[in-house]
């Protein structure tokens, strides 16, 4: 079973680009988004993006129905292929990429809180509850912003994680958080709209805060919070990964097959 449209090809965002002309001149937008007066204009641009993508999303849903009426809308399933396309082609591609990662993180911490590992203490439970809530907020915001242009809900595959084991849960959490940070760091410069870039910036630093706190639980009283495995000691730079690198890392944790190409600008 596949949610791929008729040509067997790409459910990607070239499609959106061709449906609606999105503003592409990044210089114009960034220059407009300074000062008070243009803040209002920025919001209008933002809404225009949402409007354009929503319209395209409706058309896309219609395509699905023509192909396969039995495909559940709003939820993916094992065997489905979700193609994010050329991720930097439009901001919708980047937002869906972020939405996919936030879905994965939210699902993970939801499971952690439903079946806490043995020996968990009150402090750890409180941290993991906060983190779960943050990831749910991120997921829901992207879902709302994308509207009908959103990719389906993903089905996690956490079979490699032992939720009863502290080491397994916290080790996985640290990896997920670090991947999340590196994904935002690597995709930030694909974003064309200043409002979206700011939103990504607001989220990535919180993911980094999660990384540090999880690291401290896992490897207390060490430099693991900003360890040489996640920050290059010679430059002090955090990790940045391309979309393809990130998708390769997260693919084992999702039932659907998520594809996406590194963007061109």
């Amino acid at each position: 079973m596949s949610i791929l449209p008729m040509n067997g090809g790409k459910l990607n965002f070239y499609f959106f680009g061709s449906m609606e002309k999105l503003p592409k001149d990044t210089t114009d937008i960034s220059q407009l988004l300074t000062g008070k007066e243009s803040a209002a204009l920025g919001r209008r641009v933002f809404l225009r993006y949402l409007g354009a993508t929503a319209a395209a999303g409706v058309a896309l849903s219609a395509c699905h129905n023509e192909i396969d009426d039995t495909v559940a809308r709003g939820a993916g399933r094992a065997g489905d292929v979700i193609d994010l396309g050329d991720i930097g082609y439009s901001d919708v591609g980047v937002l869906n990429y972020a939405y996919a990662l936030e879905q994965l993180e939210a699902a993970f911490y939801t499971q952690v809180m439903m079946t806490p590992y043995s020996g968990i203490n009150g402090y750890e439970l409180a941290q993991l509850r906060d983190i779960r809530d943050h990831e749910i907020s991120h997921r829901e915001l992207f879902k709302a912003a994308l509207g009908s242009a959103a990719i389906p809900g993903l089905t996690p595959n956490f079979s490699s994680i032992n939720f009863g084991s502290r080491a397994s849960v916290l080790g996985t959490a640290r990896v997920f958080e670090a991947i999340g940070v590196s994904a935002y760091n690597g995709a930030g410069n694909l974003i064309k709209n200043g409002d979206y870039l700011l939103l990504a910036g607001k989220i990535v630093s919180v993911e980094a805060r999660h990384t540090a706190i999880i690291s401290e639980m896992l490897n207390p009283m060490t430099s693991s919070f900003a360890g040489n495995d996640i920050v290059a000691p010679s430059t002090g730079l955090g990790e940045a990964r391309t979309p393809e690198e990130v998708l390769t890392l997260v693919r084992p944790f999702v039932q659907e097959t998520i594809n996406g190409k590194n963007a061109r600008r």
Partner: peptide, 16 residues
């Protein structure tokens, strides 16, 4: 990209 890579490291520091 470089600025974002510094930004996330400041956040690691801040949390600790």
């Amino acid at each position: 990209k470089t600025a974002l890579q510094i930004h996330s490291v400041e956040a690691l520091h801040a949390a600790k």
